[in-house]
Design a protein around this nucleic acid. Structure first.
Lengths: 203, 203
DNA sequence: AAATATATTGAACGGTGTTCAAAATGTCAA
DNA sequence: TTGACATTTTGAACACCGTTCAATATATTT
């Protein structure tokens, strides 16, 4: 009975098509203009159909949020070309900043917006975030083990590094850096990260 | 002709009353539930009246944003009890963190939400932000001048300190610190600031 | 008391997320 | 092939949202 299998395939396909359309609308029109009706229009289905394939709008945004983390993860994994953990740590920071500035909407979906987090069940874990954070922390831990960084708690180091870059990026994205000339913001962000990391280097 | 003066007074009064109601709704129901209709209901006027006293919703949120900055400024100015700039700098950081954690909605209005910034004319300055930032930077500059901090660019120092604390606070407020036990988050935020500032101390 | 000026109203417009009875389509046994 | 059943899709309806504006109500002046 291959019919049920085909139906299952078609269901998955349409779900994927809706997500593809949702991502297009999200990237082209921005979060504030990403409505169910616009997504439905984009994929040429009625608004009601969306709710057959997704519980609510938050679930759609959570799926996009997962895709965004996959993209960041790909960018970060390219840093494995560096044999030394310390060099890789610098490269991870660089790729994080590059990703955030090149994909501001995706960055906000990952680390600022509340909506995608509401789709995560309270007892469940924030898988995407955990995986990315652990990848980062493991590299930092290796750099400490190898004596390339001072022997501090890798958790505290990672939280500090992450928060600093996140703070710089979001103050910029949400237009709170009006005291800094626009063309100097990106250099300052990269400079702050380098200087911060340098302070933790074993001398 | 005292009638026009009384009318002017009444206009200002009602404007203030609407803002008071708006702040109540904002603090009690949160940003997402702060609608013009709810504010109007709270002050017992019709929605249309709100638009006689304010151009749009963004203008109301900008006014609340100004009040929030005044509150933070009051908290920060209490640190002037410390005679040494370095001690004051630590105290300013502490009061910033305390304010953010005690008034998360106001903090988001000041440094995260887009709405209040949309009410600032493009050619105008972000007065509230500038005043607060300059207050902070002047204290840092004094600490550098007095040789209590290493002789670095106060602008870079302030941006780094601000961004780090902002990053820590917002990752927490937007529930991205699920890898940290909830009761340890506040200590970590304070610890990160202290450690960061300590690294810049002249030894 | 009538005329004028000001202040307030609330229905209306086009938008939002979401639901659900009804219609359309697909499947399958007789 | 046709009728019965299952599945999928629809779009109107609900309760909201920010905003506008002609109409109403109130206050002031003549």
């Amino acid at each position: 009975m291959g019919i049920n299998e085909r139906k299952e395939r078609e269901k998955v396909e349409l779900r994927g098509l809706i997500l593809k359309g949702a991502m297009e609308v999200f990237l082209e029109e921005g979060f504030e203009n990403t409505s169910i009706r616009r997504i439905a229009e984009r994929v040429e289905y009625s608004p009601g159909t969306i709710y057959v394939y997704f519980k609510d709008k938050d679930e759609i945004l959570h799926e996009l949020h997962i895709v965004a983390f996959q993209q960041l993860m790909v960018a970060m994994q390219k840093t494995e070309m560096h044999p030394e953990p310390l060099d890789q740590l610098y490269a991870i920071g660089d790729s994080y900043i590059t990703f955030a500035l090149a994909n501001p909407q995706l960055y906000e979906l990952m680390f600022v917006l509340r909506a995608p987090m509401k789709a995560i069940h309270p007892d469940c874990e924030w898988e995407e975030g955990f995986r990315t954070y652990h990848y980062f922390r493991d590299v930092a831990a290796k750099a400490i083990d190898k004596g390339q960084l001072k022997p501090i708690d890798p958790e505290v180091l990672c939280v500090t590094l992450w928060a600093t870059v996140h703070g710089l990026v979001t103050l910029h994205l949400r237009e709170r850096f009006q005291m800094i000339p626009p063309d100097q913001i990106e250099p300052i962000i990269r400079h702050c990260l380098r200087q911060l990391l340098q302070q933790y280097e074993a001398k």
